[in-house]
Amino acid sequence: MLSGRKDLLGIQELSREDILYILDKATEMKKVVLSDNKKIPNMQGKSLITLFYENSTRTRTSFELASKYMGASSANIAASGSSIQKGESLIDTGKTLDSMGTDVIVIRHSASGAPHLLAKNVKASVVNAGDGMNEHPTQALLDMFTIREKKGSFEGLKVAIIGDVTHSRVARSDTYALTKLGAQVFIAGPPTLLPLDFEKLGNVTICESVEEAICDADVIINLRIQLERMKSALFPTVREYSEFFGMSLDKMKFAKDDVLIMHPGPVNRGIEISSYVADCENSVINEQVTNGVSVRMAVLDILCNE
């Protein structure tokens, strides 16, 4: 599967069948994650390295656990404390890891396209764990997994993606995946955080307001305000942002009663989402994390064995 690819670089190049295949495999993996004996041999004898040029808690840990649950040897490299700080190029770092017999390199990088550059230059399979503002494919896959688990299917689903779309690789990957699976995407956020022609990326409607975007929505994906990626002030204050673009219980009333509240984390409580919403019954934010491990197990299994 994955159409015979060595790497998983983005949702853009996957077919609908590829995505569904991964989700089906993740369903099996979830049983392992939820069981008492979290050990299967699918990556026995394989090695995995997480190469993170940006900070991460859930993505890096979840890849590491996913590989360990399947019996792989894994190691972590963070940009600080490695030769990257001595000025080693990405390609040289990749070739070094290749030379150690690494089977899978999971990379996160602040520059869009970095995993693509790495993939071209190493024998190992490369998994994109988030590149700049481009893609975050495993996040989209775990989001799809979560939505399918709760809603059954994607056809005709109304999914609102709210917030900082410009800097969000999650918004891009989710949009590609949702479009391929037959859902409709509605986008809202401050115009300073909406990139040009985003509606051309899929079955996307750009809305004038958050209320319009979430009206009768089946799913709301709240995006994190990425202060670290903003090089200048793109909205006046956090206070004003949360009033007009943040998710509150009041705004939530516009959506369907059984709306799913999602967030890729880490949550800026009280900014893009209020604590009341993040912790309400409709919120599946923590289940997303559980599903992240299952989905990553599925991806690694496919890349190593198929």
């Binding site: 396209g113 503002m133 990139p195 040009l196 022609d197």
Partner: peptide
């Protein structure tokens, strides 16, 4: 350049 391709690639316009 600020364009669909730019948005798609997640590069800064």
């Amino acid at each position: 350049n600020d364009s669909e391709t730019c948005t798609r690639l997640g590069l800064r316009p």
